[in-house]
């Protein structure tokens, strides 16, 4: 195995592990809320047994809260399943706006815990490229992770994508910590391995605080 694919393999496991931890944390929170709501419902039944009146609106509200958490869990599990299947095909058409939303949803807990907000421009026209979905998801996450280090707690990172004559471009903007960064920081060997695999390029613009990820319309076969 080449050094490039060894790096990608190791990082891929790390990415899978990190996202799984994030998702399991979210599911645990949902279960904890359902557990408390069910417990409250049980508390109410004990009160009724003791002759204390319970407002039916409280029960209705509790049922609504439980249903809301079930929908939340369903969304989390759907994303988890989609993520697991993103390794199925090494080359397929992906819509970049959709994949940005997806990576943000997958890593929501990791992003929230860092105190950062992602402002994803989802009004853009569909931007479709033929690429390796799992490697792209991983590279997008590495960019977001680095961007969070640059911006810090309480800040917002702009994320957008657009079509270009040769393919497409993903932009992370409003990064205001580039002053302290050296050229060796990013992209480093790890990101370069992904860029090579995706036939992509990355440009860091310190003056405007932007990361530009340039992707071809179609990656070379066999990636």
């Amino acid at each position: 195995m080449s050094r490039q694919w060894s790096i990608i393999g190791n990082q891929g496991f790390e990415f899978m592990g990190g996202i799984n931890a994030s998702i399991s944390h979210e599911i645990k929170n949902v279960l904890a809320i359902i557990n408390e709501n069910a417990g409250l419902l049980e508390d109410f039944t004990f009160m009724v047994d003791r002759g204390m009146p319970i407002d039916p609106e409280r029960l209705k509200s509790l049922a609504g809260k439980i249903q809301h958490q079930i929908k939340r869990a369903d969304g989390i599990v759907k994303n988890m399943n989609r993520f697991a299947h993103s390794v199925d095909e090494s080359c397929k058409n992906v819509e970049l706006g959709e994949i940005l939303d997806f990576v943000a949803a997958l890593s929501a807990r990791l992003i929230i815990n860092r105190g950062v907000t992602l402002d994803i421009d989802s009004n853009a026209e569909p931007v479709v490229v033929m690429t390796n979905p799992f490697l792209l998801e991983n590279l997008i996450w590495l960019c977001i992770d680095f961007a969070m280090d640059m911006t810090g707690d309480g800040k917002t990172i702009g994320v957008s994508c657009k079509k270009t004559p040769r393919g497409a471009e993903i932009k992370l903007s409003e990064l205001d910590g580039f002053g302290s960064m050296t050229a060796a920081d990013f992209p480093n060997e790890r990101e370069k391995a992904f860029l090579e695999a995706l036939d992509g390029e990355m440009t860091i613009c310190r003056e405007t605080g932007e990361i530009l990820l340039v992707l071809p319309e179609t990656i070379k076969a066999g990636r």
């Binding site: 929170n29 904890a32 809320i33 408390e36 709501n37 417990g39 409250l40 508390d43 009160m47 809260k65 958490q69 929230i112």
Partner: peptide, 15 residues
């Protein structure tokens, strides 16, 4: 940071 969790738990503890 899960408001629904802590508010419900607080109510149950008060009982």
């Amino acid at each position: 940071d899960e408001e629904e969790l802590v508010s419900t738990l607080a109510e149950r503890l008060s009982f």
